[in-house]
Design a protein around this nucleic acid. Structure first.
Length: 130
DNA sequence: AACTGGGCTAAAA
DNA sequence: CTTTTAGCCCAGT
């Protein structure tokens, strides 16, 4: 006998699944590099869902994921700018964390030509793993 | 079943 | 180079 429960629990699991993919992809961004929301969405297998990446990063568990930190602050928008309002607490926190790892932030801007993560094949395979 | 507003974006100006 | 425009997707209400 077969019971397919399309329950709320199941739905919740699917919802989290996308968040988890996003967190894992963000964990693959190397120290000192940044990526855009859209780039993370693409790498996570969720093309077109840049905004979901923003939401997922706002929902990162306090202790990280699977015992590792999720470097949410390495994700900025496609223009190379921090998306939080300049001067806000969030903005300052993100900028400080980036500068702590040698990423140069001028105003709200990071020079993508210099600091954007460009994963090679090996790195991509690694993220597809877990 | 609308409706809204986001840690967005590509393209145009 | 920067800013604006017009989509976009989706979770929460």
């Amino acid at each position: 006998m077969v019971i397919l429960t399309k329950s709320a629990a199941n739905a919740t699991k699917l919802f989290n699944a996308n968040h988890i993919k996003i967190w894992q992809t963000v964990q693959a961004i190397p120290l000192g590099k940044v990526a855009s929301y859209g780039q993370i969405a693409d790498l996570a297998g969720l093309p077109g869902r840049a905004r979901l990446v923003g939401k997922a990063l706002g929902a990162v568990p306090k202790n990280g994921w699977r015992g590792r930190e999720v470097p949410w602050y390495r994700v900025i928008n496609s223009q190379g700018k921090i998306s939080f309002a300049p001067g806000s607490d969030h903005f300052d926190r993100q900028r400080n964390l980036l500068q702590d790892e040698q990423v140069v932030v001028l105003g709200a801007r990071v020079h993508l030509k210099t600091f954007q993560w460009v994963p090679d094949l090996a790195e991509l395979l690694f993220t597809l793993d877990t």
